[in-house]
Amino acid sequence: MAARDQVSQVFHALSDPTRRHILERLADGPLPAGQLARAYRMSPAAVSKHLKVLEDAGLIRQERHSQWRPRWLDAAPLEPAAAWFDAYRRFWDRSFDSLAAHLGETAAWQPPAVPDTTGSDDSEMPEEGDRQ
């Protein structure tokens, strides 16, 4: 449950272009809120709200001990979200494999395989459809 809620929060946090931009900037290193806010044509309070959403999602943290209290990116919460996407991608990857097989195509999207010169005699291989 908690993991699912966090994935949901992460997607919500990522749903806003300003918040995504803030994350991109923090990916290069920690920044204090004031410096983050200067890049945007919005009030410091509005930027604070965005930072709060990112903080709630666990995507950014604040260094409390340093005098300039920089925010820094914590990418860990992105992992469950990425895992969900990865599962979805694999689902469709498998499905498209089967779709290709259904259409009588074997791995049409892949570069041609290097011929096997070691001579494996796989007698189970189905006949190619090479009717004249």
């Binding site: 996407f85 991608r89 498209f96 779709l99």
Partner: peptide, 20 residues
Amino acid sequence: MTSDCDPVDARSIRMERVFA
């Protein structure tokens, strides 16, 4: 920073396949 997930693209999946 260690992340295998681009924040900007984290919400979309794009795949391409060529069929005969």
